[in-house]
Design a protein around this nucleic acid. Structure first.
Length: 469
RNA sequence: GUCCCCAUCGUCUAGCCUGGUCCAGGACACUGGCCUUUCACGCCAGUAACGUGGGUUCAAAUCCCGCUGGGGACGCCA
């Protein structure tokens, strides 16, 4: 499998954000290139001027960068490469492999419809094929394709795929406005960039024989193809906007780690035995087109979430801090104490599914004033706890060692003296310190908060209980 | 409609090429239990699938054919 000079590419059209299907295609191309020591090229297919935007280009690049999919060349912009396409069209024209066609698009549309109505495949009828017409305003250039025989290729994922040439028609290479069509631009670009492996979505299978015919007409060697099955929505229909969050960047904003995303994307359609989790290095080492499945799959958000939770647990605190702080800032906590944030993260990481989640549960650490959850307040901050809490307050005031170990010792003594179980004070204290009934371990919370804040919050809770009585 | 592709638990998948070791394995989700200062984590257990009909064979999830179902493509979009 290790070959030199392997070149792959990812060619999104900047008509929208990068969605998870595109991201997976990019990932597979990237993995294949990295694994073989080849090159990975980014090319922006912006020949459709009406629909392409700079904003979309930006979003695609941001997404790639967030995922860590770096490219060796590019981004190339097709809109800047018309010379290459025009040269190819000229070559085809002068060798008689292409011809000028004067049929109008309205006319063609009519003929397509009537063919469909008759139950035939709507294809160009070849009206201008043998007319030997020259260029004219409004005319296009078409490829003169073979009518007989078959066009076949060996797909690296799906195996041998064969089309009867009579199914294919004379596709347009150059539009009436002079711009190249998608097929022409892709093939000319892939030739000029030396692409050897084309890994793309399943929806291009039908385009492949047409593109192969262009390679053949140009006398160029055809690259290897690998068509990756599409990603479907939960309703098994093709993924679309109505399925919700599709943009890669949306997952970033929901607090997913890029590596979790990468791992989830890789495992959608590809597998390596029973292994579920892969480092980037393992992905590069173990990926293979051979192990990409043939059938379309549904993107499983729950699995992504599980993966994300796992990677959060595994990540170092300072790395998580970098990711988390923007989310905390977004919810209004500016100029945070980074050390405290790191300590907070250490207590939160095993119980957070996403960074958004974590930022939410971290609030109490940074909040000036604890707001008690109503139910928690009613259940645990009751007058009959007053004596015990006062007793605890007194004892904590005497305590100088405020780390988990020291606190545990203090509590053991305190519990023994009062003949109670930890359970009895832990919940009221938790509510006093965090406002909620669920939080990290009580000693962890106390250590991160520090003696001063603990006593302050405990004091407030005591006053709050007194107000009730 | 025509062409192309696909078909294992709810979902992602292993197994299929090289039939027997598969009354089908893993993961997520779900259910129950254990652990426990709460919530989690962790651990243990459980529910759950070879679309269907035929053929080949001593033997089929695995090979062949039909059917059904799903997806994709049929643009001067990419």
């Amino acid at each position: 499998m290790i070959q030199k000079n392997i070149v792959t590419r990812f060619p999104p059209s900047p008509t929208g954000y990068l969605h998870i299907g595109g991201a997976r295609t990019a990932l597979f191309n990237w993995l294949f290139a990295r694994q073989t020591g080849g090159k990975f090229i980014l090319r922006i297919e912006d020949t459709d001027k009406a629909r392409s935007t700079d904003e979309a280009t930006r979003a695609i690049i941001d997404s790639m960068e967030w995922l860590g999919l770096d490219w060796d060349e590019g981004p190339y912009f097709q809109s800047e490469r018309y010379d290459i396409y025009n040269a190819a069209i000229e070559r085809l024209l002068s060798s008689g492999q292409a011809y000028h066609c004067h049929c109008s698009s309205e006319d063609l549309e009519k003929r397509r419809k009537s063919a469909m109505a008759k139950g035939a495949k709507p294809k160009y009828d070849g009206k201008c094929r043998e007319l030997g017409l020259g260029p004219a305003p409004g005319s296009v250039v078409r490829l003169k394709t073979p009518h007989t025989g078959t066009t076949q290729f060996n797909d690296l994922i799906k195996g041998s795929i064969r089309f009867n040439n009579e199914e294919l028609d004379d596709l347009i290479l150059k539009r009436s406005d002079g711009s190249p069509t998608y097929h022409m631009a892709v093939v000319a670009d892939d030739i000029s960039l030396g692409i050897t492996y084309i890994i793309r979505g399943d929806d291009h299978v039908n385009n492949t024989p047409r593109q192969i015919q262009i390679y053949q007409a140009l006398g160029e060697s055809v690259p290897q193809y690998a068509h990756v099955p599409l990603i479907l929505g939960p309703d098994k229909a093709r993924l679309s906007k109505r399925h919700g969050a599709l943009s890669v960047l949306a997952y970033r904003d929901m607090g997913y780690l890029p590596h979790a995303m990468l791992n989830a994307l890789a495992r959608l359609g590809w597998s390596y035995g029973d292994q579920e989790k892969f480092t980037k290095e393992e992905l590069i080492e173990k990926f293979s087109l051979e192990n990409v499945g043939k059938s379309a799959g549904v993107f499983n958000m729950e699995k992504l979430q599980d993966l994300n939770a796992w990677y959060i647990r595994e990540s170092a605190d300072d790395i998580l801090a970098k990711g988390l702080i923007p989310f905390l800032e977004k919810s209004g906590f500016k100029n945070l104490d980074k050390e405290k944030a790191k300590d907070a993260i250490a207590t939160l990481k095993i119980r957070s599914k996403t960074l958004v989640d974590m930022a939410e549960s971290a609030r109490f650490y940074f909040e000036k004033e604890i707001i008690y959850d109503e139910k928690a307040d009613n259940k645990f901050l009751k007058p009959d706890m007053l004596d015990l809490l006062l007793n605890l307050q007194a004892r904590l005031e005497q305590t100088s060692i405020f780390d988990q170990e020291g606190l545990e010792k203090t509590f053991v003594a305190f519990l023994e003296a009062n003949q109670i179980k930890l359970k009895k004070v832990a919940q009221p204290l938790r509510v006093a310190l965090t406002g909620k009934t669920a939080s990290p371990g009580i000693f962890e919370v106390m250590e991160v908060l520090g003696k001063e804040a603990v006593l302050e919050r405990l004091g407030k809770a005591i006053n709050h209980i007194r107000d009730k009585a």
